[in-house]
Design a binder for these strands. Sequence first.
RNA 1: GGAGGGAUGGCUGAGUGGCUAAAAGCGACGGUCUUGAAAACCGUUGUGUCCACACCAUGGGCACCGGGGGUUCGAAUCCCCCUCCCUCCGCCA
Length: 435
Amino acid sequence: MIGAPPHYEELNMLDIRVIRQNIDAVLERMALRGQDIDFAELFAADDKRKEILLSLEALRKERNTVSKEVGERKKNKQSADDIIGKMGFVGEEIRRYEEDLRLAEEQISSFMLSIPNIPHSSVVKGTSAEENPVVKSWGEKPLLNFAPKPHWEIGESLNILDFARGAKIAGARFTLYRGAGALLERALINFMLDLHTKEHGYTEILPPFMANSDSLRGTGQLPKFAEDLFKVEKTDYYLIPTAEVPVTNMHREEILAEKDLPLCYVAYSPCFRAEAGSYGKDTRGLIRQHQFNKVELVKFAKPETSYDELEKLTLNAESVLQRLGIHYRVVSLCGGDLGFSSAKTYDIEVWLPGQNLYREISSCSNFDDFQARRASIRYKRDDNQKVEFVHTLNGSGLAIGRTVVAVLENYQQADGTVVIPEALVPYVGGLKKIG
RNA sequence: GGAGGGAUGGCUGAGUGGCUAAAAGCGACGGUCUUGAAAACCGUUGUGUCCACACCAUGGGCACCGGGGGUUCGAAUCCCCCUCCCUCCGCCA
């Protein structure tokens, strides 16, 4: 049972006309990613497409005209055999041009699907995470008068994280939580959902945890990053790598009303990632798992406000760590570190004393109209009724597993116990301390 | 899993081979009327793409009636495949 093929692929992923008119600026922006993209091939294919289209439409026009004539004659009981005979040839020609057109469109489409989004002007040039500028820092590292332990040691000694059994049941990169560990995970999910719905005005969504290939293509995971996904055999279903996929695709192929924007959604979901190519990386602990929980923030915004919305969304995500009283910093990803679909991304990096480093706990991005074009998500302006692409944004608010890591490492005590952050106490049935 | 019935514009819903981008109603928008509003009446009201123009506006062509393919001079309409929805039966958390 394979799902229907995508029927919106003819839409441009980035507008070819815009690229043509601003080719120098586009190349300059793409250079921020350290990528040099050759658009000549694309423009040639696009020219060819138009040429074919012109001939094809002329033939179709002829056919329409003649068919009308046939209709007239039949009504008047006249013979139309002479012109019908001629149309057989035109029909063949049309079929030939249609095939040519399909090939040209396929070529354009596969090129467009392979190029990343154009970075925003504020993105700095750089090749790796080391070059991401720090734009903000909040709180202080905790003063610990003992040698802090990494969370996997804390979790095992308190018997709340069971890595060995997770591996037995499923394999590497799976963890079993028990007792207060499971409770803590569940509490964090509820705490974050409550915060974002009640205080930040997001609408809660509980989406399907599997999505079809159209959806994955809409948000940019496919076709390029198939190896990062878990696919369900003999179906067109994929386990979602983030709630961004189902929630953004809620409005795929829809035209929204300007007055409803921005739409702000928050969704809890487990996330499934194959983590291909990261063998041997972060093998200990909860940091890099095939399955983890996340509370995700997703917005659909008007183009002129989307960067303001990105700032707000990032602040909303940050506020989780502020409530928990955990030190973090915010970095703006440089061009080389920027994700394929993103125009601008802020990473929130939480301080982990047990490992003596900052670690990404949230990634907040504005995709401009990149996803909206792929998924055909548009809105109609109130004043002139014009239809335009929306801008889509999303960010973790936050990754739950890594938040557990941050709580365990930042709130660990000399005696091996872990104090529950005050804001979380109501969510764990009044428990003040683990161990 | 078995048997049937559906999918048409923002919505409801006509349309079984040419006169249909698509009736009618509702909604929305503009106008007349009114001190204002309502009612009534008149008008407008899909998306995409290509061409003309430097752009907008405008004009013209082409495509689109769940998706894909086929028959035909011509398809919303006939045929095949797929997806989704509904009803009944069976099974099931």
